[in-house]
Design a protein around this nucleic acid. Sequence first.
DNA 1: TGTCGACATAATTGAACCCTTAAGCAGCAG
DNA 2: CTGCTGCTTAAGGGTTCAATTATGTCGACA
Lengths: 315, 315
Amino acid sequence: MTLTQLSTFVLVVRLGSVKAAASALGVSEPAVSQALGALRHHFGDQLVVRGRDGMTLTAGGGRLLGVASQMVALAGEAESAVQSAKGAPERLRVVASSTIAEFVAGPLGDAFSSRSGGVVEVSSGVAATGEMEALLSQRLADLALGPPMDSDPSLGLASTPIFRGRLVVLAAPGGPARGPDGLWQWLVDPSGTDPDSDTSLLLRRLGVSSSRVRVFPNQTAAWEAAAGGAGFAPAVAHLAARQIRRGELRVVDTPATPMEIRWYATTVRPERCSAATRSMSHFLSTPGAMQLLRAPGTGIPPSRFRPPVYVTIWS
Amino acid sequence: MTLTQLSTFVLVVRLGSVKAAASALGVSEPAVSQALGALRHHFGDQLVVRGRDGMTLTAGGGRLLGVASQMVALAGEAESAVQSAKGAPERLRVVASSTIAEFVAGPLGDAFSSRSGGVVEVSSGVAATGEMEALLSQRLADLALGPPMDSDPSLGLASTPIFRGRLVVLAAPGGPARGPDGLWQWLVDPSGTDPDSDTSLLLRRLGVSSSRVRVFPNQTAAWEAAAGGAGFAPAVAHLAARQIRRGELRVVDTPATPMEIRWYATTVRPERCSAATRSMSHFLSTPGAMQLLRAPGTGIPPSRFRPPVYVTIWS
DNA sequence: TGTCGACATAATTGAACCCTTAAGCAGCAG
DNA sequence: CTGCTGCTTAAGGGTTCAATTATGTCGACA
């Protein structure tokens, strides 16, 4: 399997014919056909077959196409990435659990970025706890915010605590209504589906069965629903302070709350990560960062804003 | 530049030494060193240099590392992707603007998935309008939800209308407060930073300068802030029906609203996309889908929930 | 200053890659 | 049936890759 083979495969699919791909590449037809043949042999799949109008993909070919076109695109990017490294701001990639990403990763990144004078650019994304270790060790991310990570010492990760807070349960002041099946509903953000998250831990301690859990795309939406009386919503206390102060939500006592939680910043070992990563990791333990963690803004000026997610890898 | 070269480069960085990488690969030291040399020559950059303890990355090497480790990971995935295509459910990748992704992409995907009897699996992600065409034509996504796309006929994309609605402006019932600089604040979701989105169009028509716009990570959070009196928030009318009915927000009259908007489903030309994609595209124009678009649930059962984003490409 | 560990650089060989021309096959219009 | 189009296979050659052994070079350290 070669990059050129993959790229001719992609081109054949894109153009719908071997002939067109050959002429586009400025080579003979057999050259293209042979590259295809090599891939077919390698994968043990026809990948593309002659169809009514042009070449059409097999199921396996469809899967390969997604992967292959990404690899080709990345190959092209590699050149420019290295070239543009001269003089370009360094990029720091932060992954966080959905709750942290929603409320604090952005402001923290912006604060660090502006404090560095613009030589560092921070972007953040969402990942499940179990994926963070892999992302860090594969250098797909520079810094992870969430639970501590030390399951596998050979990965060489180092976690430092950056925050202590309290997880509470919220509900509408009038009390929540029962769900359609007569049971209470629990309203959580996506971290509720992450078995290693604090939210999941809380739900387990309370003995909540998963059939009574509704997952919202973000924490704010879950609170919104809770304020409307749809059920109980777990929350990090200070993040919902405004909603509580305004009387939209109130704290409900449960046997498991308030539950103490801790957030950590994790990187690969300091000696093996970039200076910027070390610097941000250090910044996160300073009072300035602590202040942002405790009272983050609820909005981010658009000039600094970068959507947390750009292109997803589905394959 | 070869995949094996890239993978040895990644290994050298990961292990911190040429020697260790050589022994891990079961080859001689020069073999590794030579692969490194080829990359160095190709990119015109040292990539890794001998440092105090182990090999350390140059700026360019850092950039390459991110790209390279993805390519290596994808190469590994390619094999299993093709193999697992036999008998595995087909995957449909939907990209949508942030507003649509937040409220309707999930329910639509789930509805189609269950209607197909589980042979199709739908996952959704967020993208800017300008990126959707490229994502579709590069087959990084199968279906895009948002504005129509026909800028470049050679890409072979086809859009069909699926929804008509009204964009309105919301504010707290008591009227919003002025911002710290004495001006009104406009509270938007990330699509406010997408120059081709309906939200941006509305802001332009109203002559709102970007300094008065605050971008929130999602639409619900923006409405939350608006309900607290932080400013004006654009919204697709029916999506905010609940908040309006509960009296948390009210519709504000402006010269540009209500503004008629249209959402489209875009795919590559029917004859060149998979049957599942065609089928979903057709489903989106049925009354059942229309009903979901008009009154989507606010939460998704966790069994069906898949986080919209998995791993981001930063490079 | 000499030595040692570790990386870089020859010089070489076998294999793989990539292209070419020539020929073989399927499907389809007339 | 014939001819045409378009994909595939076969055979051959130039180029690059990947691995080896041997040798050079750089930095740390006593």
